[in-house]
């Protein structure tokens, strides 16, 4: 049966703190505080509650408060050999990770951040508690309001807690790097490649999966390297990513060159990390109209995160 979020004292207190009026900004770990422009200084800063509410390994779901650190969550899940697809930026919270909506550099293997979300409970603009989505691993009951919350930078509601889908941690996960190969060959030949990063000369590969399959792919990787006249792939840490993101198509990421400055491209994905800010292409006009209407419908008084702007708005 439906669980009334108001009967959860932690959520009720959080909703009361946000209240029905006045500008509010919700702060997670503050690791990406400037994305979308800093919030208006007049906005009251609130923080979401913390803690893991319920982890059910055999259901592959976990209910967690939005203020919990992703790394802390993953430590607990790892005790049962599981994790979520949320990126593990040190200091970032699960609520912040969802509000940002970014996927991490291992998304090729782990999947997208947005696809981990089953249910979100948030505080709406009148201070009301709202449940979107449902608790089971599969659910298509009603309109998918969760999707709007993911990547909304806290401009539509304050995420209080959520239920995430967990996944088993692969048996083996190893990083190697090698200079002078074509990263497209790795994408083509290594089904266990859970991340392929490329800076124009060096390729870093994370192979993840069953031990036998990873070993097999490492042999394939050695072959690719030999054919290219490159050294053998060597165990390595993943590279440090330049600070700015350039969202491109997979084929465009492969076509990056020295003229683009220094970069690290996610091969097979299209996300390119660059050292200078890149402005996104102008958004589709019609979609901006719908986005404005979404903002207007969910936050008519513009009290959530004033000053912060999502996408092309």
């Amino acid at each position: 049966m439906r669980r009334d979020p108001c009967s959860d004292p932690v959520l009720a207190a959080f909703a009361a703190e946000i209240g029905p009026s006045g500008p509010v900004t919700i702060k997670g770990g503050g690791t990406h505080w400037s994305v979308g422009g800093g919030p208006d200084p007049t906005a009251r800063v609130v923080a979401a509650p913390e803690g893991i509410v319920k982890f059910q390994p055999s259901e592959t779901t976990v209910e967690v408060r939005a203020g919990t650190k992703v790394t802390e969550l993953h430590e607990v899940l790892a005790e049962h050999g599981q994790r979520t697809s949320l990126p593990e930026d040190p200091g970032s919270t699960v609520g912040g990770a969802l509000a940002l909506g970014w996927s991490g550099p291992a998304r090729l293997g782990r999947g997208l951040t947005r696809d981990a979300v089953l249910q979100i409970r948030y505080v709406g603009s009148a201070g009301e508690l709202v449940t979107a989505g449902g608790p089971t691993v599969k659910n298509v009951s009603g309109f998918d309001v969760c999707r709007l919350m993911i990547g909304s930078l806290g401009t539509l509601g304050c995420i209080a807690d959520m239920i995430l889908r967990t996944r088993p941690i692969p048996e083996l996960e190893v990083w190697h790097s090698v200079f002078g190969i074509d990263p497209a060959d790795v994408l083509q030949s290594c089904a266990t490649a859970g991340s392929i990063l490329w800076d124009g000369s060096c390729t870093w590969i994370m192979n993840a999966g069953y031990g036998v399959d990873v070993e097999h792919d490492l042999a394939v990787l050695a072959e690719i390297s030999a054919k290219a006249g490159a050294d053998r792939p060597a165990p390595a840490d993943p590279p440090k990513l330049p600070p700015h993101r350039w969202s491109r198509r997979p084929s465009e990421a492969l076509a990056m060159g020295p003229e683009d400055g220094s970069f690290v491209a996610e091969i097979g994905v299209g996300m390119v990390h660059v050292d200078h800010p890149v402005s996104p292409p102008p958004p589709d006009e019609g979609s901006v109209l719908v986005q404005r209407r979404v903002k207007q419908a969910f936050d008519p008084d513009s009290r959530f995160n004033p000053g912060r702007r999502v996408g092309g708005m």
Partner: peptide, 25 residues
């Protein structure tokens, strides 16, 4: 009657995820 494009082919299209909201609509 307006035609709009939701989502996109790049890694992480910006803006609210109207694509995701439309699916299941």
């Amino acid at each position: 009657g307006r035609v709009v494009m939701l989502g996109g082919l790049d890694a992480e299209p910006s803006g609210y995820d109207l694509r995701g909201a439309f699916v299941g609509g």
